[in-house]
């Protein structure tokens, strides 16, 4: 048998062995047996000395070709077997992905904090400073400086917890605004502040009343502040909180610290303005009060109302949350039932 035939035979036998090897170990065995230093191909090449010199390159080339072919077949078979083994392993490792994941511990912000944070961010984006006043305030700042002298009928709108005759729990976060006004240096630009915080009213707690709740009041004072600016700002607030699809209407109202005064309503989102129990058949829901800062309030803070003017607005995050999420009892916000708190996911 010529060397060439011998190589062909080895090749065919080898390829058959490789193909039939069903485990990696056998593939390796075939490799050692065929291509090892003591293997038949090496053996064949050793027989080269008996070949005519002019034939040698041909045989040599053929031997290399056979070896490469076998090596390729081994690599291929090995990878086939590895893949099969991996597939088997993967199949065995299959999980029920619908089983619950192991819980990661994560708390949540209170829904009222979420609303306050959202508005703080909106207004900071428009250059407002956030100010936190004291919760225990002087009657003078809470009422008198806001154009609500003692015995003013509008004080009936805000039943008050007093500590003494002159000290009270603030009924509105605008109690801090006179201080903002008197401390502001207008040479450094307009006053733009937002005051969120807790306020208190002398009310008996029930589904719609709470002796403690929250308020966000805004105040802007500059030389050229218009009621149109107020309207644009209020529309922005309503649309930020409730969505673009809702209309906003302003209607006259009365607050002693603003003139003109307005209240802003948004389209009732429950009935889309058709009229329902929530909006008392009006199609509108009252969401905030506002107005142009009363000249007396400016004067009392030493600001000339002939030169400066501004707007103020106030809204209740508790009420917003009730409207936005359909919460039917304000006490839910302060009982801290985890089944309630965990319903509001958004990050604060």
């Amino acid at each position: 048998m010529s060397l060439q035939d011998r190589l062909t035979e080895l090749r065919d036998q080898g390829l058959a062995d490789i193909k039939s090897a069903d485990v990696l170990k056998k593939v390796n065995q075939v490799k050692v047996e065929l291509l090892g230093k003591k293997g038949p191909i090496t053996e064949v090449l050793r027989g080269m000395r008996d070949v005519a010199p002019e034939e040698r390159p041909k045989i040599g080339a053929y031997a290399n070709e056979v070896r490469d072919k076998l090596q390729a077949a081994i690599d291929h078979r090995r990878s086939e077997l590895e893949q099969a083994a991996l597939n088997k392993q993967l199949a065995a490792e299959q999980l029920d992905v619908t089983l619950p994941g192991r819980p990661a511990v994560q708390g949540q912000p209170h829904v009222i904090t979420q609303i306050i944070t959202e508005l703080e961010d909106l207004f900071m984006g428009m250059g407002y400073q956030i100010v936190d006043g004291d919760e225990v305030e002087e009657d003078y700042y809470n009422f008198e400086r806001l154009n609500l002298p003692k015995d003013h009928p509008a004080r009936d709108m805000q039943d008050t917890f007093y500590i003494t005759k002159d000290v009270l729990l603030r009924t509105q976060t605008s109690a801090d605004q006179p201080r903002s006004l008197e401390n502001h240096d207008f040479s450094k630009g307009p006053l733009k502040v937002l005051s969120p915080g807790r306020v208190y009213r002398r009310d008996t707690d029930d589904a719609t009343h709470s002796h403690q709740f929250h308020q966000i009041e805004g105040l802007v004072v500059d030389k050229h502040i218009t009621m149109a600016d107020l309207k644009g700002t209020l529309i922005l607030v309503a649309k930020t909180l409730f969505g673009d699809q809702f209309d906003v209407r302003l209607r006259p109202s009365y607050f002693p610290f603003t003139e003109p005064s307005v209240e802003a309503d948004v389209t009732c989102f429950n009935c889309n303005g058709k009229g329902c129990a929530i909006c008392k058949q009006t199609g509108w829901i009252e969401v905030l009060g506002a107005g142009m800062v009363h000249p007396h309030v400016l004067e009392m803070s030493g600001i000339d109302p002939e030169v400066y003017g501004g707007f103020a607005f106030g809204l209740g995050p508790d009420r917003f949350a009730m409207l936005k999420y359909g919460v039917d009892d304000i006490r839910n916000f302060y009982l801290n039932d985890v089944r309630f708190l965990s319903q509001f996911y958004k990050k604060g």
């Binding site: 900071m124 428009m126 307009p190 500059d222 149109a228 309207k231 700002t233 209407r249 142009m292």
Partner: peptide, 27 residues
């Protein structure tokens, strides 16, 4: 001014945002 505004109609007021010197709003 309030009388004029309400009889003219708040619906008819334009809606704008305050202009003027910019201020920094941050915590």
């Amino acid at each position: 001014i309030e009388e004029v505004a309400r009889i003219y109609g708040y619906d008819n007021l334009p809606a704008t945002l305050p202009t003027g010197q910019p201020t920094i709003g941050k915590l």
